[in-house]
Amino acid sequence: MNIVVLVKQVPDTESLVQIAADGVSIRKDDVKWIMNPYDELAVEEALRIREAKGGGVTVVSCGGPKAQETLRTALAMGADKAVHIQDPAAEGADALGTARILAAALKAMPFDLILCGQRGVDEDNVQVGPAVAERLGIPHLSFVIKVELLDGRVRGHRVVEGGTVVVEAPLPALLTTQRGLNDPRYASLPGIMKAKKKPLEVKSLADLGVDPATVGAAGRKVVVRALKLPPARQAVRMIGGETPEAVAAELVRVLHEEAKLI
């Protein structure tokens, strides 16, 4: 079974995000970068499938030079090889542009199953997985918390509002991962050492036959006009009282009479 995992490097969710001077991008200096947490689930699931069924796990990322750290992390977790699509012309791609690049890379490699996070926790587009599947002309199952491999088919347990729906698709297929799927392993020290020797191939858009005008900042369908911080709230109003009863009564009174919420 050939499994390909699409990974992205994103700012740590515990970090503050600051708007850059251009007003349309975020500050990239003094940010801690991590593997997108949903993509970690995808790497972990791929490793478990390989452990159970055999085969190989290739991780693919499109990003600047730093994205190689995330690929090395996936290799240290246990992936077999990595492909890094790195090209200045790919920078600033929107979700469709990124999907176009990733799909072009996938067309050049064997795959039975593609896994990726349901969204990147940076731009929160929730688009790249389904868009890659569409460009490859294969089915996809999104928001999956359990994967079952049958003969030539895959079952994904999809989380929807208020329940779970089990959907079956023929392979090859793409699955996007949701929290609850597994607990990703940490890279071990021997794993980190081994990862340094695992193959990591760097490719340009030209290598993939992708026209730079259709991707990157030039090919954006969605144009960012401005980034803003959410409006600040007024200072908190503390509610006190002599007893829990008094505090509760005042809180309920305020929510009822002033905020008119209950």
Binding site: T13, L16, V121, D124, R225, A226, K228, L229
Partner: peptide
């Protein structure tokens, strides 16, 4: 970013 930033 989960609501840390609003994009127009």
């Amino acid at each position: 970013f989960g609501g840390k930033i609003l994009a127009e």
